[in-house]
Simulated scan of single mutants.
Amino acid sequence: MDGPGPEPIARALAAAFPDYEVDRLTGVGPSWNGANETVGVVFADGGRAFLKVALADESRRLARERAVLGYVGEHGPLPVPEVVVADPDGDPAYLATAPAPGRGLLEVCDAASEDEREQLLRRVGRALAALHADRFASHGEIVGAGTERGSAAEGTTADGGPTASVGSAGLAIEFASWTDVLLATIERTREIGTSERLADHYDAVIDCVRANRDLLDGAPAALVHGDVTKPNLFVTTEGEEASATVADGAGIAMIDWELSHVGDPARDLVRAEDQLLNGFDSTGPDRFAAALREGYRERAGGLPRGFDRRRPVYEAVRMLGRSGFVDQWATYLDEPLDDLVERADAALRARLDAV
């Protein structure tokens, strides 16, 4: 990618790095979210950064990501990229980070044997469990930096009770029931969806979530990533070094925290398994799903409380990742759109019947 790129990117680049000479911009792979765009930046001195620019009114996402990167970087068990500079209120809003540590999981998996992939997924499961160990008193939407801190940022008082670390990074959270937070994530999916062919699926899933409010609202409240995919994961330790660090959740770094929130860890795990292993209407090998869950159990002592009872609801919610982007799937799979629409419609009906 030569030149300064599209006009919003050029303006954000000039605002973020006014004193640096940019050699070139690079692509970072395909994205189905048209609300923002991320480019790699290579400076004349060889330095590198990644610049995410809001192309629509998505500044809140960037404020959230900046806050969570600071919070996890200070308190979390997982490595995250360092925030270089950010202006969520800019025109356009932007966020620049240093490169993520390690090698991309997508690249590592492509070169790995099946046994090695199984071990990598076990490590991802442990990393997710380590993240989910950060618990909050209630569910909610993260809207930026603030004073709220979970168990990962708590110390211990003289009488053994928790106390938040004074002056440390915190989050601004709009607390709400888990059902309402989940409904808000569905509406965001609707906003960035690229196809209206299955628009009725959103309302069907929303009805399902509302009908299960009593089941959902009792879920644990943990910091969740919200978009665990191979392109968002990096392997920071390998071989013998990994065995010494993975017990603490290290060895896997995560990027793209713009969808993070305080939610049900079971939903994050269901979504991670689906995005890491499954296709449009195909399921990955059982051994890989088992490895992901086993890694989670090793770190957490078990799957999230109530996982099996709430999983069917989250399986229905996950269908919106097909329904709302069915045109993108048709291009990716090189299959007729009408065929995918028919299959997605049948799949959603089956998932709703299973709830």
Rank of each mutant, 00 (worst) to 15 (best):
A129W: 04
L121F: 15
A98P: 03
G140Q: 04
V143Q: 09
R149Q: 14
R135C: 12
L106A: 11
V124I: 15
D110E: 15
A112R: 03
A130R: 09
A111S: 11
R126A: 15
P101R: 07
V108N: 00
G125R: 00
T147Q: 12
A93Q: 09
C109M: 15
A111Y: 01
V108D: 00
C109P: 08
T97C: 13
A152L: 04
E114G: 13
G90C: 11
G125L: 10
R117Q: 12
A127K: 03
A100G: 08
D89F: 06
T147N: 08
G150Q: 08
I142H: 06
L120T: 02
A96K: 03
D115R: 14
L120N: 02
S113D: 12
Y94C: 12
L131W: 04
A153I: 03
A145P: 06
G150S: 07
F136E: 11
G102D: 05
D134N: 15
F136H: 08
G125W: 04
D89P: 05
G104I: 00
E114H: 15
G90V: 06
D134H: 04
S151Q: 08
L128C: 14
G104H: 01
E148T: 13
D110F: 00
D110H: 04
G125I: 12
A133C: 14
L120M: 13
R122S: 13
R103T: 03
E154R: 10
A98Q: 09
S113T: 15
E148Y: 04
F136S: 07
E107T: 15
E118Y: 06
G125S: 10
S151P: 06
G150P: 05
R126H: 12
F136T: 11
G150I: 05
P92H: 07
A127P: 05
A145H: 02
A137T: 13
A111G: 04
D134S: 11
E148I: 09
P88D: 11
Q119K: 14
A152Q: 06
D89T: 14
G102I: 05
A93M: 06
F136Y: 11
Y94I: 08
S151D: 13
E114P: 15
A111N: 06
L105M: 07
G125N: 09
S151F: 01
E141T: 07
L95Q: 04
L95R: 02
V124R: 02
A93K: 04
P101H: 06
E141Y: 01
E141K: 09
